[in-house]
């Protein structure tokens, strides 16, 4: 009975996927992938209609998610299992598991077969083969590393050391730490400008954002935001910055040139991660406690609607469909 039921579920999922693939062929709208850490799943949303296309079972505790540069593959960390799930954007029904040592958390795909992954318990930035899961390198960084971003223009990886109050800057080719830059208190989330010239660092405990020059590593400035900023994203044209404040339940929109806040939007309870569509038209915010997504106008930051997503949603990423 159990087998038959799951067989039907699989068929249903496949049917959903075929439908979505057809729609995508016409619309080619980007897909939004959201991890649900409590449910052990990844939810796939069509950003043209903001409707759910599929729910993929990926095993316990999926936390952060990243897309390969073209969006073909999605990578999901399971810090409590020592695992990375690989989702093929063209074959959503068949996630693959890579078992890795330690406690993988934040990650970024270099697009050359390598993943840069923080290991938050072992204070490492690890470099993992995205096909086989083989450990290519383990680089010592600061304490409790969280998110990882890449600036391919300068061949640099940036890691937020949450308990080190610093950013480790790693050479993507030589795989060594080039610099450790002090920022605010408890840096967690990172974003790189599309031109690769700036790195934005959200400091959870000092409630501010540090703006670093990606090459000189000088601090452009520090901007005060709301309480406990847990998410940061840049608009695709680089002109606007979105900061999600978990304790305040708000999103700040900042002008990237002046670093002045242009808007503060109230969202759901305990918001955390945020992602912006490639055309800049919409931004999506996970409201962790209220179990929904706030959809914001990507230009103004105004809230357009909320989508039910379920309790435990944690990480999200936007990727081109297929």
């Amino acid at each position: 009975m159990r087998t038959r039921r799951s067989g039907y579920a699989l068929l249903a999922a496949a049917a959903v996927f075929v439908v979505s693939a057809c729609t995508a062929a016409h619309a080619a709208a980007p897909l939004l992938y959201v991890t649900n850490q409590s449910a052990g799943s990844v939810i796939v949303i069509d950003t043209a209609t903001d409707s759910q296309l599929a729910t993929l079972s990926v095993g316990p505790g999926p936390a952060m998610i990243a897309a390969s540069p073209g969006g073909r593959h999605l990578y999901v960390t399971h810090p409590e299992k020592g695992r990375i799930t690989v989702i093929d954007g063209g074959a959503l029904g068949r996630p693959r598991n890579l078992d890795v040592p330690g406690t993988p958390f934040g990650l970024a795909s270099a697009g050359d077969g390598r993943l840069f992954v923080s290991d938050w318990n072992r204070d490492l930035l690890t470099v993992v083969d995205s096909e086989t899961g083989a450990m290519l390198s383990e680089i010592k960084v600061g304490r409790a590393p969280a998110q990882v971003v890449l600036a391919p223009q300068s061949r640099r990886a940036f890691v937020a050391n949450r308990e080190g109050d610093s950013i480790s800057v790693v050479d993507m080719d030589r795989l060594v730490v080039i610099a450790t830059v002090g920022v605010g208190k408890a840096p967690f989330a990172l974003a790189v400008s599309p031109a690769g010239d700036r790195v934005y660092v959200a400091n959870v405990q000092s409630s501010d954002v540090s703006v670093l020059d990606a090459r000189s590593l000088e601090n452009y400035g520090t901007v005060r935001v709301g309480a406990m900023p847990y998410g940061v994203a840049v608009a695709p044209d680089g002109t606007r910055l979105f900061v999600v404040n978990q304790q305040s339940g708000t999103v700040n929109v900042l002008d990237a040139a002046s670093l002045v806040a242009t808007r503060r939007t109230s969202v759901g309870k305990y918001p955390e991660s945020i992602a912006v569509l490639p055309d800049g038209s919409k931004a999506y915010v996970i409201n962790w406690m209220s179990g929904d997504l706030s959809v914001l106008d990507g230009e103004t930051g105004r809230e357009l609607k909320r989508l039910q997503i379920g309790e435990g949603a944690r990480g999200l990423v936007v990727a081109p469909s297929g």
Binding site: A63, E80, W120, R162, E163, M289, G312
Partner: peptide, 14 residues
Amino acid sequence: VPAQAHGPTPQKVE
């Protein structure tokens, strides 16, 4: 021990 966890699944009380 590290006080500022982020790897484990956060839990909710309401």
